[in-house]
Design a protein around this nucleic acid. Sequence first.
DNA 1: CTATTAATTTAGAATTATTATAATTCTAAA
DNA 2: TTTAGAATTATAATAATTCTAAATTAATAG
Lengths: 143, 143
Amino acid sequence: MKPDSHKFTKEKRAGEGPALTRQRQVVLDVVQSGDTHPTAAEVFEAARGKMPGISFATVYNSLRFLKREGLVREVAFGGGASRYDRETDRHDHAICSACGTLVDFDLPGTVELIRSAARATRFKPESVHLTLVGLCPDCRECK
Amino acid sequence: MKPDSHKFTKEKRAGEGPALTRQRQVVLDVVQSGDTHPTAAEVFEAARGKMPGISFATVYNSLRFLKREGLVREVAFGGGASRYDRETDRHDHAICSACGTLVDFDLPGTVELIRSAARATRFKPESVHLTLVGLCPDCRECK
DNA sequence: CTATTAATTTAGAATTATTATAATTCTAAA
DNA sequence: TTTAGAATTATAATAATTCTAAATTAATAG
């Protein structure tokens, strides 16, 4: 954490893009602290702890903003709520079919993967998302 | 289409599981005809064409039933509505970031893929889902 | 420093997607 | 043809998310 990170707002404001406001900073802090992948509702809960009075709408707005700025990543599966990921670099996910735990990992060789997927589909590739579904180490034991 | 496919109901009924009723058959037909990946709402629209009076709830119930029976597959991305896929074997998806088109394809080497993903995560693997995001052949031209 | 303008936040309503409920209807078998 | 269980229907409920309008806050010009 840089010593002048609290000046970020002013710095950014003077010119192009919109600001990293206090509430957005709080939301970002929540997502970045801890390696869980919280839902918007969970982010709201935690954010309210740090800043009582913050609204649900602002959490959503902030998450959308932070996503656009590339500071957090949205991860959406199945029908449930989206989860937010502090890791913004390309990576893969594994989700436990028993407990729902979501973990990040990096599969080597995804560059070649994206290439062959593009070849097979004739798409101009932008990204690949790979998700492993299975039993997490904890759940595979407790059986 | 087998000549006795209309007897399916009776055949199945006599014994174990529940029936492939008329409305379920209609929903199945809708998903299986055409290679689009319709949402529940789209399935409802089309189903109502074949069977006016079918309810939205029944479409949802039928899709859930058909999914359990392994006759259709649910595909869920992002925040939007789930889409339903007539292709039930393991396969991959490519989604166009411009027009939303969703196409099926099969990437070779996914067996090895699932193995290395499992190795990296220590998960007991069940399935892998790979999605390529990019521009579909149509959209990559019209630029 | 103050007025003006623009962006952001808030609270709550609205929307969208989906599931649950309760009453009715259908189906298959006795 | 009665009956039991399953399925369907209409509707209500729920969950997740977005929108709206008013209030607040921040940035900029004077």
